[in-house]
Amino acid sequence: MLDLPTVAFYIIAILLVGTALAVVLSRNIVHAALFLAVFFGAAAGVYVLLNAEFIAIVQVLIYAGAVTILVLFAIMLTQNAMSRNANPFAGQWWLAAIICAALAIGIIYAVGSSKMALLSANASANMTTAGAAGGSIVRLGQLLYSPFDYSYVLPFEIASIVLLVAIVGAIVIGRED
């Protein structure tokens, strides 16, 4: 059962977990930021596998483009970034590791024993090939904008206000006195 979506999924999954670990464990903060860019690109690959083309493009534009540049600028402006140990660990990192491992085990156990596991086994056995190609953007747009049908048009408008407030807030907070 080694079809193309399965192989692609495992390659992307290994890439995602590896780059996430590299971001978290890297001593040099610039390296961490560059691994973060690879992580965002690989996440876009997951969205393509899930027939969510629009989310994949937005991921590349906003995360891999804008957020990575923003993080790199913040590193450049805040410290002598090229120093060796710019990204130290807190003293109790082992406690954080224990908590996170316990949380991961709990979530994976819950996923394995839930009713949704049955759903994935029966209804949509192979979800990467189940969706109709090309149709999801139209349905997504109707669900976001449509003023007549059931849609999320009011939260969408509020999101624009959130972005405006964030722009103004970033300028006000980051301004030189």
Binding site: F9, F89, M116
Partner: peptide, 27 residues
């Protein structure tokens, strides 16, 4: 075969890696 479980477990693992970073970083 890639099922819903694969993606949810992947999301959970990445979430926990990020949580570890958020708890253990000083920068």
């Amino acid at each position: 075969m890639v099922t819903l479980n694969s993606f949810v477990v992947l999301g959970a693992v990445i979430f926990c890696i990020g949580l570890f970073g958020a708890l253990s970083r000083r920068n």
